[in-house]
């Protein structure tokens, strides 16, 4: 065990893991996080807590993660390299580990020009791969970025994101390989609507021997409306929404119901993809759906490990 986190135990025991996302509030009300944590607890193995996602200022992921722990929901603390240099990253990881946070997802982060503080100075002292390598060395070798000994290593399960549909297509599996080399223990993918194309990507990863070294969890985004599907298709970089999905959402009488149905179908399909070890359900601002969706998908009760 690298961290002893619930997520690590579930994955290592060979269960089909389930994670979801919790978006911290734009404000200092801890009760909002606690309430969401109580809602999600028991329905997932761990929940990601986003780090100023889309570069919009919110409660910190480290603070929200601690509140989740208080409520008994295991956090996967997301950490982007956009806003912190290597000094702050190492320091925050030591603080997070000391507070009991055991899963960290390393991300580059959306550019601040997409958020609500486009005037901000960007940091990107290191990228997400260098962040993975640095945190792995802190955990496994007990040293910081300059090789100085840590009195106690942070025991963290290291995650990274991957996009099976991102550009340049020919480079995507190489990028996954690099994330594994750098230190990723688990991967949560970008949203999948085309399982066949996801399978091709997984097959290439398997052929290159990558899947023995890492747990890959497929990403799911339940759609609320045809408009949302269309928006994701046209406006969000790196997301692939097939036309059939948009058509289905348009034809549906109730968008949310159809979105849920599509999500259930996708979860079912992902369970059969060789090497896919779980699902990561991203339903930000629609967290209420998670208990129902996991129930309907037959993912409950979550294993006790």
């Amino acid at each position: 065990m690298r961290s002893g986190s619930n997520l690590e135990k579930v994955l290592e025991a060979g269960h089909f893991a389930v994670t979801c996302e919790l978006g911290p509030p734009k404000g200092a009300d801890g009760e909002e996080v606690r309430e969401l944590a109580r809602l999600l607890k028991g329905n997932v193995d761990a929940a990601n807590v986003t780090d100023n996602q889309t570069a919009v200022v919110r409660m910190s992921s480290i603070g929200a993660a601690r509140l989740m722990l208080d409520e008994g929901l295991e956090p996967v603390m997301q950490m982007v390299t956009r806003d912190r240099n290597r000094i702050a990253i190492q320091s925050d990881i030591l603080g997070a580990a000391a507070m009991g946070i055991k899963n960290v997802l390393c991300l580059t982060g959306d550019h601040q020009s997409l958020g609500n503080n486009p005037q901000a100075k960007s940091v990107w002292d290191i990228d997400s791969l260098q962040q993975l390598a640095m945190l792995k060395a802190m955990r496994d070798e007990g040293v910081d970025a300059v090789g100085e000994e840590l009195k106690r290593s942070p025991e963290i399960f290291l995650g990274a994101a991957a996009n099976p549909f991102g550009d340049p297509t020919s480079f995507r599996v190489t990028r996954l390989a690099k994330k594994i080399t750098a230190g990723a223990d688990f991967i949560q993918t970008q949203v999948i609507y085309d399982v066949a194309r996801y399978e091709e990507w997984m097959e290439e990863a398997r052929d290159r021997g990558l899947l023995d070294k890492v747990h890959v969890m497929g990403g799911i985004v339940p759609l609320k409306s045809a408009g949302a599907a269309k928006y994701m298709q046209k406006m969000v970089a790196g997301i692939y929404v097939p036309d059939e999905v948009v058509k289905r959402m348009k034809a549906a009488e109730k968008g949310k119901k159809e979105g849920r149905k599509i999500a259930l179908e996708l979860i079912e399909q992902l369970r059969t993809v060789k090497g896919n070890h779980g699902v990561h359900i991203m339903a930000i601002m629609w967290e209420k759906l998670i208990p129902k969706l996991t129930e309907e998908a037959g993912l409950l009760p979550r294993p006790k490990v």
């Binding site: 956009r82 580059t108 959306d110 550019h111 020009s113 997409l114 960007s122 990107w124 990228d127 997400s128 791969l129 260098q130 994101a161 996009n163 991102g166 550009d167 340049p168 480079f171 990028r175 690099k178 750098a182 970008q190 970089a237 790196g238």
Partner: peptide, 21 residues
Amino acid sequence: CSKSLLNGPCGGSADGACEVD
């Protein structure tokens, strides 16, 4: 690279364009 990444590209690369613009 808008993010000065040494191990890019990031997930925002689409159709050869940057997520910034």
